[in-house]
Design a protein around this nucleic acid. Structure first.
Length: 125
DNA sequence: ATCTTGACCTCTA
DNA sequence: CTAGAGGCCAAGA
């Protein structure tokens, strides 16, 4: 793990972005939801929110809780990419996530922002 | 090889 | 207030 892969090795750097997204999504705790923008911003590029969506599409079948990722408005924009049109909603509800009258996720109650994994527990500040 | 679309977000007119 | 365009990264045609 010590030897970092060369950036100009095979040109797989691009997929590295996908893996970063998957890593964040995989860290989303149950009963919580995050947004594309927050993930992209966490990766360093807030404008890359679109690419995050592509990563999720490629994440289908990888066991990633992509259903916990919603757009800025809390709407399940990617529900159509699931097995069914209501699979995403059912999964979120199964985790105890509430929806608004508009059929959107209550971000105010379940919003979770990706943060870097704490290397130390006692490390304050 | 180029162009368009895509599970988006933000800014400016 | 609403409407429009730009930007990011990647994949498909």
């Amino acid at each position: 793990m010590a030897a970092p892969p060369p950036s100009d090795a095979s040109g797989n750097d691009k997929q590295d972005f996908f893996k970063r997204v998957w890593a964040v999504v995989a860290r989303i705790p149950p009963g919580r939801v995050t947004t594309y923008g927050d993930i992209a911003e966490h990766l360093g590029t807030r404008s890359a929110a679109r690419t995050v969506g592509w990563a999720l599409k490629a994440a289908v079948g990888r066991g990633l809780p992509c259903h916990r990722v919603v757009n800025r408005f809390g709407a399940l924009t990617g529900k159509r990419h699931f097995e069914g049109p209501h699979v995403m909603e059912e999964r979120l509800r199964s985790e105890g996530i509430g929806f608004t009258d508009d059929g959107r996720v209550r971000l105010d109650e379940h919003r979770w922002v990706p943060r870097e994994p704490p290397p130390d527990v006692h490390a304050g500040t």
